[in-house]
């Protein structure tokens, strides 16, 4: 995957960005209203279909990092494993191959120049239409001594296990658990990979794009809520949850 492609999430419509922006409110209104009823329930492919991002290059936002000795050094050490080194809005992003991900994290943590001693955040994004690279684990690192941030990305196929970094930064422990909970990305070597926010037996992983937004899991609720028969005339009440038998 090249640098340019990285910033263009999914293939979509060819609507140019420039023409949309200065359009007055009349153009905006129908757009907003067209979007609003769009997120209906149980429409798994709804969201990924909508993006109208131009696949064209956006050099104003994404460009290769030039003249940064540290990044150059990393490129030198990890060579082909670094598939991308871009700076967007003043924030540096490196994409690394999965097999050298942990090695690179260890390097960033230990190296005297880097000293990325804090894992600010760890999250993931889901790109269903990128075949073979559906998930992207994003690691936000911060170096307290150097006051510098860097973002590391790893692309994973659906079902791939991502190596854990929770032994390098203990703080990544819960963040990886949350990614597992929300995306179903497994972290190999994680000491305690359980769901963190949702119940253990919850079906599905909510932040995947195919997971619908308006969704009520009646089966799960049935399993966990104790029903008690109450004598009342059900014809008078609009029973929504009671259809069990």
């Amino acid at each position: 995957m090249s640098d340019e492609e990285k910033a263009t999430p999914p293939e979509g419509g060819e609507e140019p960005q420039k023409s949309e922006k200065p359009t007055p409110s009349e153009a905006a209104k129908p757009d907003a209203s067209a979007q609003k009823p769009a997120p209906p329930r149980a429409a798994p492919v709804d969201k990924p279909a909508t993006p109208k991002a131009p696949p064209a290059k956006k050099p104003s936002i994404t460009f290769n990092i030039t003249a940064d000795p540290f990044i150059d050094r990393i490129k030198e050490i990890f060579g082909g494993a670094i598939t991308e080194a871009v700076e967007t809005l003043g924030q540096q992003i490196l994409r690394v191959a999965k097999d050298r991900y942990v090695e690179m994290c260890r390097f960033l943590h230990d190296d005297g120049d880097a000293q990325f001693d804090m894992c600010t955040d760890l999250t993931a994004t889901h790109w269903p239409e990128r075949a073979g690279q559906e998930f992207e684990v994003v690691l936000f690192l911060y170096s307290v001594p150097n006051n510098r941030r860097i973002r590391i990305k790893v692309s994973l196929a659906d079902g791939d296990e991502c190596p854990t970094v929770s032994h390098i930064w203990i703080g990544a422990n819960w963040m990886e658990r949350e990614v597992f909970d929300m995306f179903g990305v497994k972290f190999s070597g994680h000491p305690d990979l359980r769901r963190i926010l949702l119940p253990e037996d919850w079906p599905g992983h909510p932040l995947r794009k195919e997971y619908p937004i308006e969704y009520r899991d009646n089966e799960w609720t049935d399993k966990h809520i104790e029903y008690r028969e109450i004598d009342y005339d059900t014809s008078l009440i609009d029973v929504k949850y009671g259809e069990r038998k």
Binding site: P9, P10, G12, Q17, D31, A32, Q35, T50, P51, K52, A53, P54, T120, D121, T123, T125, H126, V138, F140, I170, G171, N173, W174, M175, E178, L207
Partner: peptide
């Protein structure tokens, strides 16, 4: 992704991470 809605919004929750 260039639309009116964010493709992904991640909140970096300080209390969540501190609670760890």
């Amino acid at each position: 992704d260039g639309t009116t809605k964010p493709y992904r919004m991640r909140i970096r929750p300080p209390a969540f991470i501190n609670l760890q």
